[in-house]
C-alpha cells in the first residue's frame, strides 16, 4: 500500500522524484563513463560490454530491475504531480511573465516525456537490437593471450588458461599443480558493441535523434540535480549556489560526453576501421 499511498503527499512524492532521480543520474554517469571507452578502441569497449553482459551475473538484472523500478516511479509520480498541479491552477493568466523560473525548470515534464520516448527507442536499438538487427547482430572475434599449461607429473597435454602467466613456472589451479608450457592465443566470439555503435551512429537520423535526446537530457538534469538537493532539504546559502552551478556543470559535462560519440563518428574521427 505504501507504494501508492505516498502519492497522497506532495512532499513525499517529491521525495520519491528526488531519490529515483538520483539513482537514474548515477546510472547516467556510469553509462557515460562506460561510453567514453569507445574512444579507447574496439577492444576496450567490447570487453567493457562483455563484462557488463556476461561477467557480473545476477547483478546485472538486479541493476536493471532497480533502474526500471526507479524509472517507473519517477514517471508515474511525475505524471500524477503534473495532473495535481494542473488542477491547482485551473485558470491561467492572460499575460504571464517569469522572474526566476527558467525554461528548463518549467519544461521538466515535457523534456521528461521526450527523454522517456528517446530511452525506449534507445533500448530498442542498442539493448534489444529490435530496430536495426543488422547492426546489432555483429560478432567481434578477439584473441586473448593465454598460457598452455600441463598438469604436473602427467602427460596430459596442454590446456589453455588465462589465469596462468609466464612469470610463474608452476601454478596452482583448482587444487592441482600445473607447469606452464608457452604462449597460446585464444580466439573467441563476442557481441560487437563497438561496431554496433559505429554503424548505428553513421546513420544521420540516429545521430541527430541521439544528439537531440541528449540535449533534452541536459535540460532536464540542469534543473533536476539541484532540485533534488532542495527537495531533500539541503539548501543552505553557504553552499546552495555551488550546488546550482555544479548542477549546470555536471549536466553540461554529461551532454558533451554523450554527444561527442555521434559527432566524432559521423565525421569519421572514430571507428574508421569498422
Amino acid at each position: 500500500m505504501i507504494l501508492i499511498n505516498y502519492l497522497k503527499s506532495t512532499i513525499l512524492s517529491k521525495f520519491v522524484m528526488a531519490v529515483t532521480g538520483i539513482i537514474l543520474v548515477l546510472f547516467i554517469i556510469g553509462h557515460c563513463i562506460g561510453n567514453m571507452q569507445l574512444f579507447i578502441g574496439r577492444e576496450s569497449f567490447n570487453s567493457y560490454a562483455y563484462f557488463l553482459q556476461e561477467r557480473i551475473g545476477e547483478l546485472l538484472w538486479i541493476m536493471r530491475i532497480g533502474l526500471i523500478l526507479s524509472l517507473i516511479f519517477h514517471v508515474v509520480t511525475s505524471i500524477r504531480l503534473k495532473f495535481l498541479n494542473l488542477g491547482a491552477k485551473p485558470k491561467k493568466y492572460e499575460v504571464k511573465n517569469y522572474v526566476k523560473a527558467k525554461l528548463t525548470s518549467r519544461t521538466m515534464i515535457w523534456t521528461g516525456i521526450m527523454i522517456f520516448a528517446f530511452v525506449t527507442y534507445h533500448i530498442l536499438q542498442f539493448t534489444t537490437g529490435t530496430i536495426y538487427p543488422g547492426d546489432y547482430n555483429r560478432t567481434d572475434y578477439y584473441t586473448t593471450n593465454a598460457m598452455s599449461v600441463k598438469k604436473l607429473g602427467s602427460d596430459e597435454c596442454c590446456t589453455k588458461s588465462r589465469e596462468a602467466t609466464a612469470k610463474d613456472a608452476i601454478i596452482n589451479y583448482r587444487g592441482n599443480q600445473y607447469e606452464t608450457a608457452g604462449n597460446h592465443p585464444i580466439i573467441s566470439e563476442r557481441h560487437d558493441a563497438y561496431g554496433m555503435v559505429i554503424h548505428g551512429f553513421r546513420r544521420p537520423i540516429v545521430a541527430i535523434l541521439y544528439i537531440i535526446g541528449m540535449i533534452l537530457l541536459g535540460f532536464h538534469l540542469n534543473h533536476a540535480i539541484q532540485s533534488a538537493f532542495q527537495t531533500l532539504g539541503y539548501n543552505n546559502p553557504k553552499y546552495f549556489n555551488k550546488i546550482v552551478v555544479g548542477s549546470t556543470v555536471l549536466s553540461t559535462l554529461i551532454v558533451l560526453c554523450f554527444i561527442s560519440l555521434p559527432i566524432t563518428i559521423i565525421f569519421g574521427l572514430v571507428g574508421g576501421g569498422v
Binding site: I11, L84, N85, G87, A88, K89, V99, K100, S105, Q230
Partner: peptide
C-alpha cells in the same frame, strides 16, 4: 502540510518563482 493539500494547493517543483516575487 496536510491542510495545505486539502485546500487544493499544488506541489512544489522548485521553480523558485515564489521567492522571486
Amino acid at each position: 502540510v496536510s491542510q495545505m493539500q486539502k485546500e487544493g494547493f499544488g506541489a512544489c517543483t522548485n521553480f523558485y518563482e515564489c521567492e522571486a516575487v
